[in-house]
């Protein structure tokens, strides 16, 4: 007990914050990233790629933030036409950043053993995204899960209904503004 009480005032935690302001060494993946961003911009216009950066701690993962209008075309392009075909939907997840919602697809190329993260940002009120089930059948249940837990509506989804929670559930639990029905829990 006493030990724990001593702890808070000490809080020697700058270690975690220090490396952030420090500029990271350039990533070996930077050329790949730039090429990808350029290709996408050429193909779908400047506004298609809102941001592109490299997630260094995660094995230099190329991360692209796509505009909502270009979400499906970009996925289609990455799957079928890109020189490194990202044909394997490794993970699909949605995050509530309070300011906005974000949908992340981690795509993998089984052939070239490359991985990228493709993101799209959505508003809380108007959380709608075209469904990519036709491109990736694997996205079917993932989109239902995101709809169920995060309240993102996927237009054009063949069977958009709650998947994990009961059909009569109110609210979307993974949103940060979700109020639990029972406060005790």
């Amino acid at each position: 007990m006493s030990e724990e009480e001593k702890k808070p005032p000490v809080r020697p935690k700058p270690a975690a914050k220090k490396p952030e302001p420090k500029p990271l060494p350039p990533s070996p993946k930077q050329p790949v990233m730039d090429a990808l961003a350029t290709t996408l911009k050429e193909k779908f216009g400047e506004s298609a790629v809102m941001e592109g950066y490299i997630n260094q701690p995660n094995d230099h993962l190329c991360t692209l933030i796509i505009s909502r209008e270009n979400w499906l075309p970009v996925l289609q392009f990455l799957r079928d036409e890109h020189s490194t075909p990202f044909d394997y939907l490794q993970n699909a997840s949605a995050i509530d950043y309070e300011t906005h919602l974000e949908v992340v697809f981690h795509l993998h190329s089984l052939e070239k053993k490359e991985m990228i993260a493709v993101k799209v940002r959505l508003d809380h009120e108007n959380a709608e995204l075209p469904s990519s089930t036709a491109l990736f059948p694997a996205a079917n249940w993932n989109e239902r899960e995101m709809f169920d837990l995060m309240g993102i509506t996927f237009t054009g989804h063949p069977d958009l209904k709650r998947i994990l929670l009961p059909d009569d559930w109110v609210g979307h639990p993974l949103r940060k503004d979700y109020v639990a029905f029972d406060k005790e829990v």
Binding site: K7, A15, A16, E20, N55, P57, N58, Q90, N91, V104
Partner: peptide
């Protein structure tokens, strides 16, 4: 550290579980 404070960021890793790719994001 005694209290884990994970630096700001995002990570996805997949590992091979007996059933397939078990990823953690």
């Amino acid at each position: 550290p005694r209290v884990l404070r994970v630096p700001e960021g995002e990570v996805y890793v997949g590992i091979e579980s007996p059933r397939g790719e078990l990823g953690c994001h």
